[in-house]
Design a protein around this nucleic acid. Structure first.
Lengths: 198, 198
DNA sequence: CAATTAAATGAACGTATGTTTGTTTTTATA
DNA sequence: TATAAAAACAAACATACGTTCATTTAATTG
């Protein structure tokens, strides 16, 4: 046999990406074999190379796509919001929504940083930094206006991000808690931790 | 050659554990080969099996030891503290201290859960749950006494744990921030997020 | 519709992996 | 001090991995 009936490049690539996402999320990059991946897509192992350069490139593409989408969408959600408090609320809501919607990408994006080539890792870390900076900006402006009281901007930003991101490791959309409640509870935690009320 | 001069069982096992900790922390469980491990300890690959049952067992032992130590030490630090606010402060300080001191064990303990056999994973998840419950107890008692105001105990506990644990992924003890400052900043964040002041 | 490109196949390559075995020598035990 | 146990070695096993290659056939293009 050879080229199969109905085969189309873009469709196969999309299937490879989706299967890769599933397998890396479940087992990790190192634990996923290309034979496993090929089987799930319905291909022979070698056929993968018609669509990806190699295993490492697949991982990088998945993470890179995710980071670019993340940065694009936070810009949209923050556009036009001047007040730091409102911006922080918007940031929290966006971050939680995105991390629930794209749970797997987010998880892989941090858990598999170590599996990236140094060169590839550098690129991704740079993009992550841009996202962190977006939150730091908000906190800084809030402190400047005396709306927030924070001893160390970057440490606070990391703490907030860690808290919000940590949620995606346990949140189950089919569980008892719906998305809005989740957002409300965590927005409360973030705002209380930031306001100079006490 | 054969048995080498000065060789002793317990010492070699300790060396294997330490090297395993280093390698798994740096590269991940799947990425670490037993040949790499043996080289670092100064052994032939096969000799490892005089001390460990197999690769999976080494991972489980490392994580299990860590969890048992964690549970033992939190009990000591919370002993005799009645006031929920004080208990929460003590919990935060302990958690941060332990997670800085035993950064590698903590990281492996959550990042490599997926690499455990289902049976082994069940045991570890059970121990983690016990630790989470310790924090839930404190929060619950605080809410009962109206010292804390929280909508959902377990979600709040997860949020706090995520925030505090996230720190160990970026904290550098040789960086500009010392341990006490770190604890002070984060205790502030946790307490503000929990108190009914607003 | 002919020519070219794209996408699959099956087989193989070289290498690395976790683990087992038989043997040897040192350490511990009785 | 004789004997048993422990801890190392060297060599090998079976298997799995990522990747390449020549080939075939379907889809696309001029």
């Amino acid at each position: 046999m050879s080229r199969t009936v109905g085969s189309s490049g873009p469709k196969t690539l999309a299937a490879i990406r989706e299967a890769g996402l599933q397998l890396i999320y479940k087992d990790g990059y190192e634990a996923m074999s290309l034979r496993q991946l090929a089987t799930r897509v319905g291909l022979q192992p070698g056929s993968l190379y018609n669509h990806i350069a190699n295993k490492q490139d697949l991982l990088f593409d998945l993470i890179h796509n995710h980071m670019v989408a993340l940065l694009a969408r936070i810009e949209i959600d923050l556009q036009g919001i001047e007040d730091p408090l409102e911006a922080l609320k918007a940031f929290t809501a966006f971050h939680l929504t995105y991390h629930i919607e794209r749970k797997r990408e987010v998880f892989i994006g941090s858990a598999e940083l170590r599996s990236l080539t140094p060169k590839n890792r550098k690129i991704i870390v740079g993009l992550r930094r841009k996202y962190e900076d977006r939150l730091c900006d908000i906190l800084e402006r809030g402190v400047a206006r005396k709306q927030f009281a924070l001893e160390d901007i970057r440490v606070s930003a990391y703490a907030i991000l860690a808290m919000l991101t940590g949620i995606c490791t346990w949140y189950n959309p089919k569980g008892p808690m719906d998305r809005d409640t989740l957002i409300r509870v965590h927005t409360g935690l973030v705002l209380d931790g930031v306001t100079p009320s006490r």
